[in-house]
Simulated scan of single mutants.
Amino acid sequence: MRASTADRRVGGVGGAGGSAGVAEALPAAARSAFARRFTLPTRVLFVVLIVVSLAGAQIPLWLQYLPLAASLVIFGLPHGALDHLVPARLAGTRPSTRSIARVVVLYALLGTATLALWAIAPMLAFGLFILLTWYHWGQGDLFAVLALDGAHHLRSRASKAAALLVRGALPMVVPLVAQGDTYRSVEAGATSVFGATGTPSLIPAVDPAIGTALIVGALVAYALVTGIAARRSRQSRRSWLIDIADVALLAVFFAAVPAVLAIGLYFCLWHALRHIIRLSGIDPASTADLEAGRLGRPLWRFAVDAAPVTLIALVILIGLAVFGPRSTADPEYLLGVYLVLLSALTVPHAVIVTVMDARQRVWVTRQ
């Protein structure tokens, strides 16, 4: 028997389902627990790695690749594995065959088109992947700043757009300026997955002094513009200080720490983990745990739910690596294969997250 609409309704955090605004996306107890158990330790780890790197210590190559390898099963690749459940959870209903099928079709069409672009025009695909990641990581950080830190100083659409651009640029632009050779090496690995080799690099040679000056200027401008709004209240000033401290930390982190290691850690411990906790906020099964500040069970529940789709993605990854035109165990090539798969998954995933932003009113102006 088909359940009625009323029977299919489910409650979310605060009883409003996933369509609640960004301010109600997570209970205060969950925000506090996340900051204490995940955000603070991650910041400390980043600071330690900055100190180690600036001290001139040589970090083994295998250790630099380890976070990206771990991201195959821990946080990174799995963080988008529940996209097929998002539309229903945002609507406060149980997932149906139709709602899941729409997301599956979205992934099939956009993912296939993305892989085709890599095969036909790999340099264009790489450039678009960088721009898309800039946007997507920026939008993920914007939501986290609003939902986890309050971000009372980000009230206008313009200030939110600035936060998205600046935070997305940190992992995408800072390594280009500080570690251009590594950037070009990653580009070469990704663009060779479908057999293209020897193509001219899309990555321009950036004078470190000029690039650094531009980045510092942009960060100072962001601090000044958002600082004006932060003068409204003590809450605004506190959230502004957290925002600027994180921006400064990430800027130094991506400049000082080896790029592959920095990106891998950021992907797992910063971007993906924040999205997973966001998904828990629209999971009715996690409501009671989040309101009590318990994060263990929601994270485990996510891991179990995400496992089947993650396994499918791993099978596709292995297929690309083993049966692709350049089957080799070279780390640069294997990283390229992973990035190509991530790009094919990121395109539809970014669409889903953009829908989440709209439903959770991320861009609504606050007075």
Rank of each mutant, 00 (worst) to 15 (best):
A28I: 07
V48Q: 06
L54E: 06
Q58S: 07
L61A: 13
Q64M: 07
L66C: 01
G76L: 03
L82V: 05
P87V: 05
T93V: 11
V104P: 09
V105H: 14
L106Y: 05
A108D: 11
A116R: 11
A121V: 06
A125H: 12
W134T: 01
Y135C: 00
W137M: 08
Q139R: 15
L146H: 04
D149M: 06
S156T: 15
R157E: 09
L164A: 15
G168W: 14
A169G: 10
P171R: 08
M172T: 02
V177K: 08
A178P: 13
A178K: 15
T182V: 13
R184P: 08
A188S: 06
G189T: 02
F194Q: 10
A196Y: 07
V206L: 09
G211L: 12
A213G: 10
L214R: 02
I215D: 11
V220C: 10
A221W: 14
A221H: 15
Y222H: 14
Y222C: 06
L224P: 06
T226K: 11
I228D: 00
A229D: 12
R231A: 02
R232L: 04
R237A: 15
W240L: 00
D243K: 01
L250E: 05
P258N: 07
L261E: 07
W270V: 14
G281Q: 12
G281W: 04
I282L: 13
L290C: 01
R297E: 02
R301C: 00
A306S: 09
L311K: 01
I312R: 10
G319F: 03
T328N: 09
G336I: 02
Y338L: 14
V340I: 08
L342N: 07
A344L: 10
T346N: 05
P348L: 00
P348D: 08
A350N: 08
A350Y: 10
W363N: 00
